[in-house]
């Protein structure tokens, strides 16, 4: 299964992490698009001692959401646009929108 997670709320990050780890253990592919309130939370996650499954997760951060908060994308993270959001939904078999 190709699982997409759309994140727009920081408070949902723990659930997103648990779901992503479980999906990887099941052999699923997982990709994230993080915007709005979730973008700075994901920046902090990547910048910290991030869990091993994060390296297997395709993460894109919304550039507009970062710019509005005067944040830069951390090393190794892709900074993209709403086109990446659209591409993610086109790619996935299932989408969990934590918006």
């Amino acid at each position: 299964m190709k699982l997409a997670l759309v994140l727009a709320r920081a408070a949902d990050l723990p659930a997103a992490c648990a779901l992503t780890e479980a999906a990887h253990l099941a052999g699923d592919e997982v990709a994230w698009f993080a915007m709005d309130d979730a973008a700075p939370a994901v920046v902090a996650l990547i910048a910290g001692p991030h869990p091993p499954w994060l390296g297997d997760t395709d993460v894109t951060l919304c550039a507009t959401s970062l710019d509005r908060r005067q944040l830069a994308g951390p090393a190794g993270a892709r900074v993209g646009s709403q086109d990446d959001h659209a591409a993610l939904l086109a790619w996935a078999d299932r989408t969990v929108a934590l918006t």
Partner: peptide, 20 residues
């Protein structure tokens, strides 16, 4: 095929540890 429900941001813990 995909449904996004956008709600207000309720009380919760931010990445920085503060109640948001």
């Amino acid at each position: 095929e995909v449904l996004e429900v956008w709600t207000d941001v309720g009380p919760g813990v931010t990445a920085e540890g503060a109640v948001d």
